[in-house]
Write a protein that binds this DNA or RNA. Structure first.
Lengths: 339, 339
DNA sequence: ATGAAAGCGCTAACAT
DNA sequence: ATGTTAGCGCTTTCAT
């Protein structure tokens, strides 16, 4: 069951290992016939190249790390698909690690990847992360990083892929207004996540424009779980804030809010219309299906993959920010409630 | 930005590379003081071992492949958590690949992993997979495999982790009966998946026992998507089959069915009680929350991780089957509808 | 307790 | 067009 190496082939064919090697990859400097003989023998004996050996030579592992805060929602999975689409054809492996929204896990994951010698790291941050110092160190030590979705604060200049959050949030809130909502609450994401304020700003801009912004309509959530969405609704109710529409930072928050409202016998969208920001299947998994700003997640992954390849090829290329365009999808949760 | 190697350390300290190596790992055959000096220098210069080099020596890559049919539901993510819990502390990397329910992708993924020289493969099959021959070849070529959830047919003897499907399915159907259901439909999984018939058998056993089994109550689904669940309900309705309960092969099928029923203004659970087989968050994401047989997914991953470690350590150990116990969780979708 | 040297599988100068 | 050799970073005999 021992693995066949080029040495075995060389013995078998009475050729030097370098000839074997050349036959296996060189186009020229190799006799066509010899090449064929080698190829045939390789197939016959079941030769498989040993990636490890090559790695040792090149100093590259041909693998990149993919770190995500969670894998419970399909968000990361979709981005991953894009990443793989770009990297697999080039022979890269993708090592996936999840941080469970814990900055300490994120730290461990990054250090693990550095130990593994990955050629690059693509990462979506935990909220509440405080590892900016570490990112900087890793990049300085020579492992390129690309960020997507949740990116580090402005002070750290890096390559990243994001979506035009503010404007799309604004458009979705406009939609809520267009279907008849007068009092739109916003379930705002954790303040530790950059997107939170971007999306909140889009929301505020529109409500201000229509002169219906009230500070108590905005609920800051601690996380983005269903539970957080439920809690937000409870807070609104406890404060006696009236609302006929909800714009949520993520689909999970929206779903948590919606399920709680359904529990209280509210009708969606008749009593409360709900819209969110997302891009995953989840908005279709619930009833009624959620209107949402769909982020082009697969594209996001592809963009991240390309950015990291750039960096791997030439560590000195300037950092770039790719801004992708999100799409508004209207579903039953906001359907024509105009009275 | 060049990486520090033991050679650098050896030069720096005027010691041979072998002494450095020993200091870094040997317990004995090394002067305590020398050892300390090496360790200090390693830290000071920022030495990180190069895993690749070691791999080349040992022939092991210290990485295992994890192949799943999909990552849209949190199913795989939870199992993965268990796998990582077992493997990370031992320094193993986990390379995750998804097959998108396409046997041809599954093939590609497996061949990719073989090329990557992974030390072992943990896999959950696609439905409709026809790659049994390939599994056999891979195992014979020396890469151990462990299967979980969707396992190969009886003819291929392998190490695997499963759940006591039949008995738990039976118990869940008993529950449906106990809350008042008289006509329980079964959304059966694709026949290409072993579990399908196991769970269906549990269902049949109970309906037979209560003498309420009717063949037209069983709908064979082509896949396990929401859409498949919806189609199944449509079929039942089209055939004019009356039903007041549904037992679904997976939570996705159940959710697809439920959403469609809600669309038709049916009340859950009053008109139709619904239960499923699962183990993911999804059953809690919907409204009303779904009663379901919760598989111990993290445990499943841990078991798979342990099995693969066994195989890696000693390729000749006998194949084992680990059967885990699933738990019945009753939620609102089946709550007390007894009239 | 330490050093010298071989070797893991492969590629790429450098011969020939 | 083919062969020889060195070397990637590390561990591990085998000497000393």
């Amino acid at each position: 069951m021992k693995r066949i190496t080029i040495k075995d082939l060389s013995k078998h064919l009475n050729l030097s290992t370098s000839t074997i090697s050349r036959a296996l990859l060189d186009e020229k400097n190799i006799n066509a016939e010899t090449k064929q003989r080698v190829l045939d023998a390789a197939k016959a004996l079941g030769y498989k190249p040993n990636a490890t050996a090559l790695n040792l030579k090149t100093g590259k592992t041909k693998s990149i790390g993919f770190v995500v805060p969670e894998m419970v929602t399909p968000f990361s999975a979709k981005v991953l698909k894009g990443v793989q689409k770009v990297l697999y054809p080039l022979g890269y492996k993708v090592i996936i690690l999840q941080s469970d929204e814990k900055p300490s896990n994120e730290r461990d994951n990054l250090m693990l990847l550095e130990r593994f010698n990955v050629d690059g790291i693509i990462i979506n941050l935990c909220h509440e992360t405080q590892n900016e110092e570490l990112y900087k160190e890793i990049i300085e030590r020579g492992t390129p990083m690309v960020f997507f979705d949740r990116i580090p604060s402005k002070t750290l200049d890096v390559s990243k892929v994001v979506v035009n959050d503010t404007i799309k949030a604004a458009l979705m809130v406009e939609h809520l207004i267009s279907v008849g909502c007068k009092k739109i609450a916003h379930l705002m994401g954790p303040s530790s996540v950059r997107n939170s304020s971007d999306r909140a700003n889009g929301y505020k801009r529109i409500l201000t424009k229509h002169n219906i912004l009230e500070s108590q309509l905005i609920i800051k959530c601690e996380g983005v779980s269903l539970e957080d969405g439920k809690k937000a609704v409870e807070k609104l109710l406890a404060k006696g804030v009236e609302f006929d529409g909800i714009f949520a930072f993520t689909d999970t928050l929206a779903i948590g809010a919606m399920n709680h409202l359904l529990q209280l016998n509210k009708r969606i969208p008749e009593d409360v219309a709900i819209a969110s920001f997302s891009g995953t299947e989840l908005s279709n998994y619930v009833f009624p299906p959620l209107s949402s700003v769909e982020q082009p997640l697969v594209k996001m992954g592809k963009a991240a993959g390309k950015l990291i390849l750039e960096k791997i090829k030439d560590a000195t290329v300037a950092d770039r920010t790719v801004v992708l365009d999100a799409k508004l999808i209207y579903r039953a949760s906001t359907k024509g409630i105009v009275s």
